[in-house]
Design a protein around this nucleic acid. Structure first.
Lengths: 354, 354
DNA sequence: CTGTTAGCGCTTTCAA
DNA sequence: TTGAAAGCGCTAACAG
């Protein structure tokens, strides 16, 4: 019968082993570990040598317990469009590592019935130092209330609604939409149609506004026949494009306010026997995976999602570090990231007679 | 000058507070927390009452430190196709919560230069109880060696190569491919072309084998003119489809071994003035997001990625629990998950004269 | 610059 | 069925 001893639970060496090996106290090792300045260079080297020889790695749980913080950042996740989370992770993980944080993903979705009530519990048990909240969770009142109640530092990404004391990362949707429209104008288009998004979505309004800005700046009237409603879905894009292309004179360019609808507009263009981009230019917004999976590849606007995630982590980490060092300054409340215009093959000057 | 005391670091109540409130010792509270059997019912209720009243949540770091395990599962992530990670997270997070684990995502990509050497450090510092390893990391020898070296329980998802002592979750690619081919045969197709994947990818072979199985079982010769090489990319799909559709007699159906190539085949079909599915049936494999973003929507095979992730977590959790309870049995080494045939609009019986 | 002491909040061990 | 004592590995506070 094997008597299990309590020692040696940790797979490797502990701080004491290192201390002994280096002939110093555990405290000194701790100082070296945390890059504190007040250690003599010779001592530091001896400790680092010991760390290397014993292949020592600090135990996170112990460190967190002693420090009362975890260096965990929670990502409050609810199945946004595929691809989005992927980019988000790339950016967030990258910056987390640089800043010494770990990312813990927690799903905040409708998987369970009462998840909104459970979220508060989760936030407290998880011992996050802070959370980042991408859409669509960033506009969920219940979650935000729980985050507030837990008094948890957070940063929201691309929120629809603005909030007091709730720092966020946003893109310049309006400006980007304006730039896209300007690009079409520069190509020579005048009859530029726009497919809108659903009223419920904040981006619908800003993207439409950007289009209006550019059209007005170019001295063009907004023609109601060139503006079609949409729901950000493929199907709604088909209908909108069908209506737009049946009008006389038909538009020479369609600016769909997201990629799914733009892809639909291309399909509908083909059904109307139009060459794209020869007869009809179609552009989108988002640069989803589909944008390059179709033919012709879609001219669109890319939100630098990875960058946004990275900046969110950075903002949060700054805030946490400041908080730890007792600095009470509020810190940044908002960062705006510039989107990128991606010109591909679905856009060209209008046909000669157009 | 404010003297910061050390107490009350934890935002909420501690186990001692609960113990005091309930008039028992901390140990008894701990027993209730961990659902140990040897607590009198009345005591248990009193404790639970106190927990509720104080809104007590155990501190994970403390618990982990004392137990020498973390209930963290690492997800070794390296930017697979977008959408994949999304589904993976859904399944994994779901099961993690049920099993009482937390998921920590660690990127294992080429973001840094020497990541392969850093991975060992990461694995030990992170204090994971175990890791799950989806593609493409699951076939990275350096990572696998590091996981072995850290003696870390793990489960691989959809690995290309099999390994001793390395449990995994796989799909029945070969059977699924066979079923898809059978479906086309049942529709009445005989000249069924196949676009292969790159040799480097394990799935290429198994998917092709499934096609061969079904063709042979139907008593059909494998016609080299019906088999085209591909690279799982849109571009390679275009070329393959162009070649296949230029042959005489041309195939009535194209089975592309992934969706990207199938989407390309549809585009090429349109360029050849073919109605899809009236003149030409095109089917794919993977059910990526694009499959429903195009017109006509793609008939394809769906890997139940979320299910696979969930099963991976379950397998790992089982193993960890067994290990904790001292049960040395090896546990399952492999689970096979059945893929699903998704019939949409890109497939139909061959044309009358076909 | 370095060490000692005293915990962090929880669980294991052992005794009652 | 319960509790007291002794850590888990690390770090803050204070002393030297």
């Amino acid at each position: 019968m094997s008597v299990k001893t309590r020692a040696n639970k940790q797979s490797g060496a502990t701080i004491k082993d290192v201390a002994q090996h280096a002939g110093v106290s555990a405290m000194t090792v701790s100082r070296v570990l945390n890059a504190e300045p007040n250690v003599r260079e010779a001592t530091r080297e001896r400790v680092q040598e010991a760390i290397r020889e014993l292949n020592y790695r600090p135990n996170l749980s112990a460190r967190n317990l002693a420090r009362a913080n975890t260096y965990f950042i929670g990502l409050l996740y609810d199945n946004p469009s595929a691809g989005y989370i992927s980019e988000l992770l790339i950016g967030a993980l990258n910056r987390c590592r640089k800043a010494g944080y770990h990312l813990m993903v927690e799903s905040c979705g409708a998987a369970e019935q009462d998840w909104e009530s459970a979220i508060g519990d989760m936030l407290r048990t998880s011992n996050f130092d802070g959370v980042i909240i991408p859409p669509p969770v960033c506009d969920n009142e219940a979650v935000l209330a729980a985050v507030d109640a837990a008094n948890l530092p957070h940063v929201r990404i691309s929120p629809d609604t603005s909030r007091e004391t709730s720092p966020c990362i946003v893109t310049d949707d309006r400006t980007a939409s304006q730039r896209m429209t300007e690009y079409l104008l520069e190509l020579g288009h005048r009859r530029i149609a726009f497919i809108r998004g659903p009223e419920t979505h904040g981006a619908s309004r800003t993207r439409f506004d950007g289009y209006c800005d550019a059209m007005k700046a170019a001295g063009l009237e907004l023609d109601p026949a060139l503006i079609a409603p949409g729901e950000f879905t493929y199907r709604s894009g088909l209908e909108a494009a069908d209506a737009l292309l049946s009008a006389e004179p038909r538009p020479t360019a369609i600016f769909a306010s997201n990629d799914d609808m733009a892809v639909a507009a291309i399909a509908m263009g083909h059904r109307h026997q139009l060459d794209i981009p020869g007869d009809l230019t179609v552009v989108g917004f988002d640069d989803t995976q589909t944008a390059t999976a179709i033919w012709p590849q879609l001219t669109t606007v890319r939100q630098p999602i990875a960058t946004m995630a990275a900046e969110a982590i950075e903002m949060l980490a700054d805030r946490l570090d400041r908080q730890r060092s007792g600095d009470d300054a509020a810190g940044e409340a908002r960062r705006e990231i510039r989107s990128e215009l991606i010109v591909r093959d679905s856009s060209a000057p209008p046909p000669a007679g157009g």
